[in-house]
């Protein structure tokens, strides 16, 4: 259940950031930082301690997936896949690098690059 919640939040943040970045042309930094601020406020909501700690990190981390440019990502399909991979990676690695600056971005980069690999390997679409 917790994994599904993480993947759901990841999909929301990744796709929303991609939309703000590439469709509304706000730029990657503004799109991601707006999503991070939204996620950051969740820490002050009356949620369980686990959710208050995890959800802001998931939302911020997945917003990095949405920072990808349209030229590289090409479609929402790749962002969807990357966001799912990010959710799974966060679920598996979340605690190991807690407090390490840049660990969320590294997780997002691994999720994105793996998705590009998946796309080329199984869907025969070159990146």
């Amino acid at each position: 259940m917790f994994l599904l919640l993480i993947i759901g939040c990841s999909l929301f943040a990744g796709l929303s950031t991609y939309f703000l970045n590439n469709r509304l042309n706000l730029g990657a930094v503004i799109a991601s930082s707006l999503m991070s601020i939204l996620g950051g406020f969740l820490s002050y909501m009356p949620l369980s301690e686990v959710l208050r700690e995890a959800l802001p990190l998931v939302i911020m981390g997945a917003s990095f997936v949405g920072m990808a440019s349209e030229k590289i990502a090409g479609s929402y399909r790749l962002i969807t896949l990357s966001s799912v991979f990010f959710g799974i990676l966060f679920y598996c690695t979340g605690i190991f690098f807690e407090g390490f600056g840049g660990s969320l971005g590294t997780t997002a980069a691994i999720a994105f690059c793996s998705s590009l690999g998946f796309q080329e390997l199984f869907l025969k679409e070159r990146f």
């Binding site: 990095f64 920072m67 440019s69 030229k71 590289i72 600056g101 840049g102 997780t107 997002a108 994105f112």
Partner: peptide, 28 residues
Amino acid sequence: AACILILLRGDFKGYAGKLGTIAFAGVS
């Protein structure tokens, strides 16, 4: 991180997580 960012300035443009990986490298 800034030195790595300068080194990678022309690479992985538009790739998700580039800045985060650079920050992680700096902190590590």
